[in-house]
Design a binder for these strands. Structure first.
Lengths: 352, 352
DNA sequence: ATTAGCACTCGTTTTAATGGAGTGCTAATA
DNA sequence: TATTAGCACTCCATTAAAACGAGTGCTAAT
């Protein structure tokens, strides 16, 4: 027995109805509210087949059917094919985002936070956005400046314009000449160097050249090491966690507590980001249904992610987390448009 | 009828029992599990009085009693008096914190986050910590550096060592001499100046002196303005929001959703911080019971806050949010010790 | 002033009864 | 051969009734 056109229509009808109501769908409902003009008995036969194919599930005898993960998967794949081309009808939501981006407050952090929030408000799902990861790791600029007599400010800039500051307190005030010497020492030796290539030998050479100021060099190097460390744990911003309470199937204490924890300990979401970057399938959009998601606490959720890429090879991930019965259509098309806007807007903007 | 010693003991017993169980407490329980050696009938009479005094409440006829906000208040005030002196027995929790602080990763942000987390783990309540607000607002240091031919880095340091960086892209490369001139211009005019005192007249004067480079000045001034803006909305870190699910009286969907939102939109917590700073009663500890809390979504919670003060007049707030029946004793003493450690540790550390 | 005793209240839990949505199967129909 | 009407059956959800039990308030005795 294979999946003919009619079965597909019925499956689609079941899923769409279930997406709305969250209740198992019976044969009579399908019979009445589709233009198939089939009796409920026929639908029942077809549903029986669909169940045998593993696309729908009966929670218990004498209940209607709900989609299985496999069923959702088919539905989503199907849908993504259909929607492939009609992408460019910018939705209201994305227009708002565009404005938000253009107004850009320079602080990446606040843009991303706002974006996550807006996305959550518009979709009624929980959202996450990871800050773009920097690929380039070359040191671009190091500088020691005197802020007060005994206080030095270290400024480190890494390729991709990641900036790191640290205050260093010294015992004895440094004169201008020494400061200049140290700056030259640091820059001539380290500028343009990938951070990974800085090794102990190099550090001790620097210290030696710095003479009695080797302590300062040590502190600067610590700060440089910090940059790597910071880059390792990706910043992730979340919003709309409370939305899970809108879906009874996620809102029981056990599940809610786990999910809230997951959103709070953003650490756990990195898997999602990594997965999304790895599983790239060309479209830049990933759909994880139920157990497919790499985060175990989300096995009762579906997750749709989009990978965006800014200039300079900086990649980040946007994710929308909702119940299995999320509005895949809306979510995917929203993410698609948002992604394309992100990809292009930044590029445009950088030139101007 | 007034509140004699015995009534007080009974009230205390009721509250303590209720803190543990979360269930209304009956006369028989008190009769059996205290050393008062009174029959349940007597206890009943006393309870009737306590109810008349507004200290306890009967959720419905033929149920035990639970403490009213007023009852909790009495209990807490009483307790804080008793505990006033025996403060210095450093608990296990605080020792852990001490280690954490000494290990200090320099990034204030990550310390505070970790602290909130540890506090949440140890107490089983939700926690929040506000980053210390800077009082001093004088500009200490401004510098323009060339990072790449057409990219300038602005570094601004404000009293209290708040550092702000911005990248500025210019059309034409600047030569060293111009850069030096601009730096001198900025520093001679702005150094030591309170940010509030920078007005339009001064800006236009600077721009005029900068000649064709007035665009750069404008961007620098924007960055300075940013510093104020950032200082206005206080950073707040939260943790352990999921703990609310441990207390059935907070865990129903309605309430949980509201609370989660409150923790997510940290904005709403600022009231708590402000309140805590304002209501200072000398001890540095504030207890808000139920409706007393300034945040309306928390009317079914109790909140204990501590105000800590680092050197240089930087004040911040630590808050613990739990159910009305929170373990006030433990929470207050934990916060007290933590507060005192914070107050001193930082001071020590700054000198070394 | 304290206590034992008892009738009474009222929320919670348990059990039973009812309703109804939905299925699977069979026999009739086009 | 595909579709449909019809019916018995299943099982969850809802409602109703009953039993339970923790706790009270009051009275009378100590």
């Amino acid at each position: 027995m294979d999946l003919d056109e009619r079965k597909l229509k019925i499956l689609k009808a079941i899923i769409q109805n279930y997406l709305e109501t969250g209740e198992p769908v019976g044969s009579r409902t399908i019979s009445k509210y589709t233009d198939l003009n089939l009796s409920s008995a026929t639908i029942r036969n077809e549903m029986s087949d669909l169940e045998e194919l593993g696309l729908i599930i009966q929670p218990h005898t004498s209940a209607g059917r709900i989609p299985s993960d496999k069923g959702y998967r088919l539905y989503v794949d199907q849908m993504m094919l259909e929607k492939e081309e009609q992408l460019n009808q910018a939705t209201k939501e994305v227009k708002e985002m565009r404005e938000l981006l253009l107004e850009r407050e320079d602080k990446m952090e606040s843009i991303l936070k706002q974006m996550a929030k807006m996305l959550a408000t518009n979709t009624n799902y929980a959202t996450m956005i990871s800050a773009p990861q920097v690929r380039g790791n070359k040191l671009k600029f190091i500088q020691l400046s005197r802020v007060e007599a005994t206080q030095l400010l270290t400024t480190i800039v890494v390729e991709g314009n990641v900036i790191k500051n640290t205050m260093i307190t010294v015992d004895e005030p440094l004169d201008d000449e020494t400061l200049l010497k140290l700056n030259i020492l640091l820059n001539t030796n380290l500028n343009g160097l990938p951070i990974e290539e800085i090794n102990l030998a190099m550090i001790s050479k620097l210290k030696q050249q710095a003479g009695i100021y080797d302590g300062i060099i040590a502190e600067v190097m610590d700060a440089v090491a910090e940059v790597i460390k910071e880059d390792e744990n990706i910043e992730i911003y979340t919003s709309g966690a409370n939305n899970i309470f809108k879906y009874p199937e996620l809102a029981d204490n056990q599940r809610a507590s786990e999910l809230i924890t997951t959103f709070e300990e953003k650490q756990l979401l990195t898997e999602l980001v990594q997965g999304s970057l790895t599983d790239d399938n060309g479209t830049g959009i990933q759909v994880y249904i139920g157990n497919e998601t790499p985060v175990k606490t989300m096995k009762d959720c579906s997750v749709v992610t989009a990978t965006y890429e800014l200039e300079e090879g900086m990649k980040g991930t946007i994710g929308i987390i909702g119940p299995r019965r999320m509005d895949y259509d809306k979510v995917i098309s929203t993410l698609k448009t948002l992604k394309s806007q992100l990809d292009t807007i930044y590029k445009k903007d950088d030139k101007g």
